[in-house]
Design a protein around this nucleic acid. Structure first.
Lengths: 199, 199
DNA sequence: GTCTATATGGCGATAGAC
DNA sequence: GTCTATCGCCATATAGAC
């Protein structure tokens, strides 16, 4: 573990912010997690907001960068969808609190988005556009691809952000059964998407 | 406006908590919103957590009670779905911050759910069960109705909770265009659902 | 760079007058 | 019941020794 002090702070902050959010996180807790003193956080990042912005940008960027790669990697629309859905569910499974963290923060302070958007949205937007065009030509029912994408994302993200409710109502709070349900969703969502765009 | 003081506090708290969440809300702000002194909030609710719990329970219950009624009101599965989707989008449109508020709070402290669940989940669960059975028998592709419900809810909720991102990426932050998109979704989601369960 | 100690402000909560 | 004034705590942030 020969990470620099700054890296240690960064990773500790990432962990705590994702779990507690900007408002719930405590500088002391981040310092404890990083195994150092609170004053050092201010030495490196000056204040809490700076630290948060750096971490949020990183989380947001990495979370969408992976998806962009997916969309560029495969050949056919059907393959792209398959790989995208598999990768997305794996990605969220590995970072289950990230979607609700992002949803919470962008609604709490939409300004956190505008600072990222030009650098981080424009390129993915192009990739998405290409993907849209593909979906559109494959899509025999001629639904606006924005609706298709929104539905796809909703089908993938909702079971994670609403997990406490769904696990309780649908599975009597059985955690293992719910994990199973999430794994099943890969095939289920694929089939639903193929049916929706009729490919 | 001859509301009781307690009602005024309640409504002010509802407004502020939905926008700022439990941690972001300030007792002072709620008092200002209610047009009275901070001390009165403590006189009526003793502390912030009590006030929050009362408000959360109310919001949560009302938000799902309406849906239960919808599911009981219509005759055929197709009609039920139609009314459900129309009502749900209207309900969220009228309370756009409620879904992200609920998602945020249940992930921040899952205990807020367990206190409600027996009283508020059990009856809706029965209604849902009936709805499931209907969907299941109508559903020629034999997909687990839990997956169908999850997809439906995701398709409905996601465009609201992820609005800042979607509005920016899909509509260059054009608010009017996005409102239009949300209204369109009523028909789009209906058609998608009919296609998915093949009715 | 890293620590201890402390300043500063804000917030939830209470005391007590009316 | 409703107000003003204030307490006590906790969190961010800084000062300053090493």
């Amino acid at each position: 573990m020969d990470k620099s002090t700054e890296e240690k702070i960064y990773e500790a902050a990432r962990k705590v912010f994702i779990l507690k959010g900007m408002e719930g996180a405590r500088m002391q807790e981040i310092a404890d997690e990083a195994g150092m003193n609170k004053a050092l956080l201010h030495y490196y990042f000056r204040n809490k907001e700076n630290l948060f912005k750096a971490v949020f940008k990183d989380i947001f960027t990495k979370f969408f960068a992976k998806l962009k790669d997916t969309l560029l990697s495969s050949a056919t629309t059907r393959e792209k969808l398959t790989v995208f859905i598999d990768n997305y569910i794996d990605l969220i499974t590995a970072n289950p609190y990230v979607p609700s963290f992002i949803i919470n923060e962008i609604n709490r302070d939409p300004k956190v988005l505008s600072s990222l958007m030009f650098e981080n949205f424009m390129e993915p937007a192009k990739v998405l556009k290409l993907f849209f065009n593909e979906v559109e030509s494959a899509n025999k029912s001629v639904v606006d691809p924005r609706h298709i994408l929104t539905s796809l994302m909703g089908m993938l993200v909702f079971p994670f952000v609403a997990r406490p409710i769904l696990q309780m109502v649908l599975f009597q709070d059985d955690k293992v059964a719910y994990n199973n349900f999430l794994e099943e969703r890969k095939e289920v969502v694929k089939n639903m998407m193929f049916k929706l765009i009729e490919i």
